[in-house]
Design a protein around this nucleic acid. Structure first.
Lengths: 358, 358
DNA sequence: AAGCACTTGGAAAACGTTTTCCAACTTACG
DNA sequence: CGTAAGTTGGAAAACGTTTTCCAAGTGCTT
């Protein structure tokens, strides 16, 4: 069933049907109504491929993520989809699972399907692939790419703001041996978090060298804690490069019968929804997934519409900030005279929060 | 850059380029190589819209899920995508978030984009919508639709197998007051789980009436436990309609200082990856997400290829089974003479597992 | 040398739209 | 009544492929 069929039945030309469907204002309302009636009766849906072919626009945005099974991403995907529905776009979702082959095939698929833009939320992608896309003039949004790739909209994440708050929060609770569980070494974003940790620690005169490498998964968090436990001078607090790592730490601590937060304070990064439901609830650095998705989508939209004009706002920034829950407490041995009763601890907590969170 | 450009540069006809690209065996290898060289040099990618238009196949499968932010689904999406990549398909992913409007727009989008098939992994979808798709002869796979919709491939899930194991496992540990936290009332799949629980309980002469309604989210699990606590005769064990609910229960128990599993045994359903990392690790009923996705994808593939022949295998079954971890234990008061020392408890656990799991 | 089988190219139709051009028609206004 | 302005329809081009038809070319067999 095509537009010609509709034209025949409504006794108008295909041109008129097209105009009616696309709500061109010049068309007579009476006529338009007649067309719409036939469309509804027959359950006609325009063929988007054909439309895309002539328009040179597919109304599809590509979205490349690292790993859809990491709970960080579904929230982004959901927001992205909400916006897509609102703006009549589709999403072509691709998950690279850290595999260079998959990254390549992702890019190929995006090009083959002629998406109108791509948001890249995976890290460690070959520069040549990015250039491949850029050379085709596909609008791109990127998270955290260095300043070295010109002509690409970039969402910079201010890791320092939140991580500094976290470190100061821990220091305020008398922690001095604070470890960091980093992400995979090749990940730029993981490197940036680590850098921010280092900076924050040095600012307040603490040693930033207690670092062990994780993988941004729960498994890595478990292993990292094992690692940390082997050390002669064990840390009393640990910052994790993301929440999944922190969940792993919590889990391994349970296994080892290490009490959180009494024996060890832990703070995560990302503030995924789950962080509110861990045991104990996770103190973590918030990086709004909703905000990230929104910025990415709008950047793309912007770039598609004003394809020629306004190439200005090419860089966006997302700040991070600490959210306090229950996985951090006074360092061991400090204030041990006070009964570690639950409500008490919470109160102290809140105080510390106020002193550092602003 | 189109196929004509390639033809010109390779000094062959567009017909030959098309044949070469699609690996039609009759074309001379020499010539094919020449064509491919030009293709690579120019970085040419065939336009899939144009191809779809003439072929009448888009090589896109629709995938409709309830809620991508529920960790149950990303694993399915990942497997689905793996298979899509392997078979040169794309996925059009849609998340209905339990909103009838979104369900409608999902279906509309699938039709507009002319997907080659749709896997419906959302529940409580209007029958009229499904018929809308079926009337268009879009191949469909469905999870758990009743036997009332003919002409649609259906994946039936054997909830009973796993739930019966779980109930018997609990009974073997001397639990008699076993509660069930159900899913949203309108969900067919949630209803089926509840039915399976009821059946299993009655089989062994226990009352199946201790039921409270949840929402398949962590929040609902928390509320449900609150509810349960108000009861005069509190349950000693609780089965949850899905793992997210169980995670909520664990969380609220922590809040209430109820020890899991000593004070309360809890078992989940789904066996999401996360279930291994809760505190304590969650005993749960496994329903392979990987298997589900695989069946769904292959069913679709099958239906597209043999569009006319073999309409046989229209129903698939997925069995469920209990996986034992640490969130269940002997009922309180039973064998309390034994010191509840950790390794001991684990051993008992394993034994119970063996007696019921087969 | 003739005949045959196979490969190749040229041309064109087809897929389902949007859009342009021009002509024809309607309406409103002076 | 004549004219201008606006709406509508018909026809056709365009988007980028695949595929079919037919004719021409190539190499092999007899």
């Amino acid at each position: 069933m095509d537009i010609r069929e509709i034209a025949r039945r409504a006794k108008v030309s295909t041109a008129t049907v097209s105009r009616a469907i696309n709500r061109v204002p010049t068309v007579d309302p009476q006529l338009a109504k007649r067309v719409w009636r036939v469309v509804d009766e027959l359950g006609y849906y325009p063929n988007t491929q054909a439309r895309a072919l002539v328009l040179g626009r597919t109304r599809i945005f590509g979205l490349i993520v690292s790993e859809i099974t990491n709970p960080f991403f579904p929230e982004i995907v959901q927001t992205f989809e909400d916006l897509a529905v609102e703006n009549n776009y589709e999403i072509l979702l691709t998950s690279t699972v850290h595999d260079p082959k998959r990254m390549e095939s992702s890019v190929r698929r995006m090009i083959e399907r002629r998406v109108d833009g791509v948001a890249i939320l995976t890290f460690g992608m070959e520069e040549s692939l990015i250039e491949h896309l850029r050379d085709r003039k596909v609008p791109l949004v990127f998270v955290d790419v260095g300043p070295d790739v010109p002509g690409i909209a970039n969402i910079r994440i201010n890791y320092l703001s939140g991580i500094r708050q976290a470190v100061q929060h821990l220091a305020a609770m008398r922690h001095t041996r604070i470890a960091f569980i980093a992400g995979p070494e090749h990940l730029k974003s993981a490197g940036a978090r680590r850098e921010a940790f280092k900076t924050s620690m040095m600012e307040i005169g603490l040693s930033p060298d207690l670092v062990v490498i994780g993988d941004h998964r729960m498994e890595g968090g478990m292993n990292a804690l094992l690692e940390l436990n082997k050390m002669s001078a064990r840390p009393t607090a640990v910052m994790c490069s993301n929440d999944m790592t922190a969940i792993g730490v919590l889990r391994e601590a349970y296994e080892q019968n290490i009490k959180i937060p009494d024996d060890l304070s832990v703070v995560g990064f990302d503030d995924i929804h789950l962080a509110e439901f861990t045991i104990p609830p996770l103190t973590t650095v918030q990086m709004s997934q909703h905000g990230l998705a929104e910025i990415a989508f709008n950047a793309l939209l912007n770039e598609v519409d004003n394809s020629t004009s306004s190439r200005e706002q090419h860089s966006y920034e997302l700040v991070t900030s600490l959210v306090l829950r229950k996985s951090t407490a006074l360092a061991r041995g400090v204030g041990s005279a006070i009964t570690p009763e639950k409500s008490n601890r919470t109160t102290r907590h809140r105080k510390a929060a106020e002193s550092t969170a602003r």
